[in-house]
Design a protein around this nucleic acid. Sequence first.
DNA 1: TGCTGTGAATCGCTTCACAGCC
DNA 2: GGCTGTGAAGCGATTCACAGCA
Lengths: 254, 254
Amino acid sequence: MATGRTHRPATRSRGIPEATVARLPLYLRALTALSERSVPTVSSEELAAAAGVNSAKLRKDFSYLGSYGTRGVGYDVEYLVYQISRELGLTQDWPVVIVGIGNLGAALANYGGFASRGFRVAALIDADPAMAGKPVAGIPVQHSDDLEKIIEDNGVSIGVIATPAGAAQPVCDRLVAAGVTSILNFAPTVLSVPDGVDVRKVDLSIELQILAFHEQRKAGEESAAGDGAHPAAAARKEAADQGPDGDIPAVMPA
Amino acid sequence: MATGRTHRPATRSRGIPEATVARLPLYLRALTALSERSVPTVSSEELAAAAGVNSAKLRKDFSYLGSYGTRGVGYDVEYLVYQISRELGLTQDWPVVIVGIGNLGAALANYGGFASRGFRVAALIDADPAMAGKPVAGIPVQHSDDLEKIIEDNGVSIGVIATPAGAAQPVCDRLVAAGVTSILNFAPTVLSVPDGVDVRKVDLSIELQILAFHEQRKAGEESAAGDGAHPAAAARKEAADQGPDGDIPAVMPA
DNA sequence: TGCTGTGAATCGCTTCACAGCC
DNA sequence: GGCTGTGAAGCGATTCACAGCA
């Protein structure tokens, strides 16, 4: 779920649960793979397995989009690809800017998944004058002095921040002031934005810490497993092998 | 998300809710910043603001750890840093390997947040023989032939996969076979792992698609004139035009 | 007085189980 | 017979509101 909610609870004509929205890209990817293999139809069971969720959840998710399946048969792959793409807004072109062209920014610029799914890297922006003009992934880096102009000229509404932590908030402010209303933040900082702006964050260090927590728990169990009589140890053991199963993507609201 | 799971619900006595675990790193970061500024105590309200959550949630989260605050005063910053670190398992050293040293892998290797929080990059591994021996972030890249030996020699239990999608599952299988039980996956693939192995995934393309969904909704929302709540930055809203049904997918395969 | 800690109410997501249709 | 679509039950997480303590 993204934070920058326009704080009206239910203005929507068709409200799709946030958790469902977060899974649609997963389904879309699995469906695209099937489509490439020219598979015509797929059952909820099969598709769920490919997407790594359970089939009841998948059917419920799809029921929010409409009745796109056929009982006794399954779902038409091509049709479903189109419906989900449309729902996600991927039938249009989204120009994106990436700010901060270090290793990470370069990795993002080179990431193939961009172009293939309705996103277009409209510009790369960096504060280092030495970077200006240098092409990364075939796109010349532009200096951050021109940020506002770049946003406007390209009609950008989605920005990716891959700067060091200290630069993230100022960059964010400028992006928002220039008209960006969705931000994907890779910097390890909590960004503050006005209402109406969505921020999603991706934070390596947080993910690792969550893994460490579970890892520690696993380790504690092995040693406790022996002295079976202890109730607390037994309790911990039970929780053991349940995957974190986040489902909530590896991302938190800011 | 872990593919294989025993569907055993979390324990309730000693178990900390998963949602709480996911926020602890956030609190820890905010507390560390306070600690660096030598702030001795902090209230739930202040800390919540710094971490970007609401204060009731924060207090509830902390209540799962124990009663570490003082009524009328707040929380002792240093003490809380320690308690959370301990709970997350960060008082010990976690050796981590990164597999796939492209732009992204290099970015991860260079990421400072690693060392500062109990994680140590024990090795960098890549399948390209030309990379072998080349130092990245001061660490020589090793060839993936030696993966198993590297895992064992370093006692690694956490692996980071930053390979292309196609290589991810084989790499994952080898990591798991060699003893890794926690995986952070950056490749756009659903990994399947045996029970007892945790997988968390970070997927740029999914995040962008979620943003696009909300962006699209904002654009379509002009009609909601109702009561005052007016989204800020009403600059560019025309760009997104809800594609009417009828046409064939404009989505390209990956 | 001020702020924590927490039962109780609430919300939203997941799962179950089966009716409905092919 | 097989598989979708969905009301209803179940369950975890969030929020409320206030009791309890420095």
